[in-house]
Design a protein around this nucleic acid. Sequence first.
DNA 1: GGCCGTCTTGGAGCGGCGTTCCAGCCATGC
DNA 2: GCATGGCTGGAACGCCGCTCCAAGACGGCC
Lengths: 228, 228
Amino acid sequence: MATKGQRGERRAGALSKERIVEAAIEILDAEGGGALTFRALTARLETGSGAIYWHVANKDELLAAATGEIIDRAMAEAVGGAEPREAIRTIALGIFDAIDAHPWVGAQLPREPWQAAMMRIFEGIGGRLQALGVPERARFDCASALVNYILGVAGQNAANARVFAGEVDRTAYLTAIAERWAQHDPAQFPFVRQVAAQLGEHDDREQFLAGIDLILAGIAAVSRPDDK
Amino acid sequence: MATKGQRGERRAGALSKERIVEAAIEILDAEGGGALTFRALTARLETGSGAIYWHVANKDELLAAATGEIIDRAMAEAVGGAEPREAIRTIALGIFDAIDAHPWVGAQLPREPWQAAMMRIFEGIGGRLQALGVPERARFDCASALVNYILGVAGQNAANARVFAGEVDRTAYLTAIAERWAQHDPAQFPFVRQVAAQLGEHDDREQFLAGIDLILAGIAAVSRPDDK
DNA sequence: GGCCGTCTTGGAGCGGCGTTCCAGCCATGC
DNA sequence: GCATGGCTGGAACGCCGCTCCAAGACGGCC
C-alpha cells in the first residue's frame, strides 16, 4: 500500500502514454502534421524510440490518441442542455474551432472511422436528432449527413492550413487563387468564375455554419409529420 | 513536317506523363493507396526513377494527376441535360461510384483543394444550382455544402476501403463493428447503440444519396421565394 | 555519312522515415 | 542483498522520396 498500488510511478520523470500524446500534440500544433516523427518525439522527451514503443503500438495509434484527445476536449466544452437544434450547431462549431486550432486533426479524423473520436461526434449529434423529433428510421441518415459534412469541411480546412502554412497573408493567397480561377475559360467555368469574386470576402466559419443550417433545414423538411 | 512537329515521339516505347499516370492508377487500383512508390513504378515501367522525375515533378503532382484523371472521367460520364436536381444527384452518384471503384481517390481528393479536380466538381454542381433557381447570394454556400458533404463521404469510404482491404466479408466486419459499438455503455452511447443494429443492413450508396437529398431539400427550403 | 547538341533515360546514392531488437537500468518483493 | 521484470535508450534494418549524373538515342546540319 505504500507504493499506491501496482501502477505507481516507478521513476520521477516517468514516461506514460499521456505524456507521449501530450508531446505529440505539441509538436503537431507547433510544426504541422508532417513534423511528427518518432525522432522528433525522442528528442522532445529525451528518450529513445524503444521507450516510446513500449507505451504506444505505432504511429497510427499515437495519431488516433492525439486526435481523440482534441475531439474529446471539444465535445466536453460543447455540452449544455440547450435546445437540440442549437446544441447541434454548438457541437459542430466546437469541432470546427478545434480543427481550426489544430488543423492536423482535420486530416486525421477521416482516417479513423469507427474510432472513439468519431463515435463521440456521432453520438452527440444523433442524440440531439432524437430530441429534435426526427423519426427513428431517418435518424441514421440525418446523423450521417451531418457528420460527413463536418468531416468534409475538416479535410478541406486541414488542406488549406497546409497550403497557408508558408503564407503570411491569407487574403493575398485567396486573391491569387481567385485570379487563377477567374482566368479559366469563362465559357467552361462560369460558376467558378462567379464565385471567385466572393472568395476574398467570405468567412469559412460562417459558411460552415450556413451548411449546417442547410442540412438542418433539410432535416426539418423531411421529418415534418405532413411529409409523405 | 516529316516529324509531326517538335513534340513527336522520339522513341517507340517512349515514356510520357500519360503513361506514368496510367501505370500509377493501375498500381493504386490493384494494390491500394499505400502501394504506390516510385520503385514500384520503375519496376512496372521498366525504367529508372530519374526518367520518371523527368516527366513528373514529385509524388504529389503524380497523385493529383491520377486523381484528376479519375474525376474527369466520372464528370464526363455524368453530363446530360437532365433537370437540375436530377443532374446534381447524377454528378454526386458519379463521384461516389468513381471513389467506390478507386478508393484511393477518396483519400486524395480532400488533399488537393483548389485543384482542377475540385474545380470540375464545384462547377458541375454550382452551375445546376443556378438552374435550380437558387439566389446568387446563397449559391456559394449551397455548392460548398454539397461539395463538402461529398468530400466527407469520400474520405470515409476511402478509410473503410483501407480497413476492408484484408477482409473478405464486409458484412461480417460490419457485424463485428456493430457488436463493438453495442457493447459500449448504453447510458453513455444510446444513439450509437441504436444505430449499430442498422449497420448490417444499410447501404452506403443509398445513404449517400439520402444525404444529398437532405441537403437539396434544405436548399429548396432556404431558396423559396417566400423565405425571408 | 559523320558529327554535334539536345532531349531523355536508367540507376547509384543520400538522408530520413517507422519499426525492431536488445543489453542494461532500477524500484521492488523476498 | 539479491533476483525479477517492468521500463529505458539507442543501434540497426529495410524502405521511402528524391537528386544527381554518365551515357544513350535522336534530329538537324554540313
